[in-house]
Design a binder for these strands. Sequence first.
DNA 1: CAGTATCCTCGAGGATACTG
DNA 2: CAGTATCCTCGAGGATACTG
Lengths: 144, 144
Amino acid sequence: MPSDPSDNDSISAALDVIGDRWSLLVLRAVFRRIYRFSDLRDDLGIASNLLTTRLCRLVDHGVLEKVRYQERPERFEYRLTDAGRDLSPVLVSLMQWGDAHRGDGEAPTVLAHADCGEPVENITRCTSCHTPVDAADIRKLETT
Amino acid sequence: MPSDPSDNDSISAALDVIGDRWSLLVLRAVFRRIYRFSDLRDDLGIASNLLTTRLCRLVDHGVLEKVRYQERPERFEYRLTDAGRDLSPVLVSLMQWGDAHRGDGEAPTVLAHADCGEPVENITRCTSCHTPVDAADIRKLETT
DNA sequence: CAGTATCCTCGAGGATACTG
DNA sequence: CAGTATCCTCGAGGATACTG
């Protein structure tokens, strides 16, 4: 039904993993270095059964992994995998948009580059000329 | 309850607008220049009542606007506002992630820079040194 | 064409109690 | 601490019929 199933699928596939509010918020908390079940639950105010299902799904989808930090009793933390870390632009772009358009006087959260302390920004750029490209100048590249 | 309400709000605010699957898919279709109700419905395979609610919400949130393209009977198209266009990085980063991690043999959708035809990429970079920054090197900037 | 009006179902979300 | 087990409710999603 969609005009081009294949490119719809790229977005849909991403949404299967982080398409619901809680998954995204859990992920965001992990980026903020909150790794343990109870810490996540307390931080997010999420019901424990829901947290369990989100963590399982995120692990199943390969964006989080369980890492044991204690034996007897066994205890695990949830850490980002490489695939999970690759979701950073999604989080950053969402946050940037929220700050820009929904701020309503709230102080925006500014993220800084650890090396030099300057703010970071999320942009779409040309791989060749490195110029930032805005939406109107993006075309679909025909691959076939 | 969250450790830092203000930065959680930036993400939550963005999710209020595009936090559900259909809103995001509708928006994506509009980026692909599908502007009319019936075209959107057919393209997405969405029930008309749902499409109505999504379009209303997107208009309410200021990311789409109704533009009349015909009188008698009045007919409207849904166009991106500036705020809507600013969501482009969110879409691009989601697509990029889906392509990279969920492809499973599907040909990825490559987006090209209209000016030079080269592929585009979404990155997070330092506003000062312009170096791409990855998740591990992002810190929160204290504003107070 | 661009919706509105109904109706139905299923499952997500939330609260709460319990467990190794 | 890190979950599992239940139970309940409400509303999102989908199908379908209708309308200016």
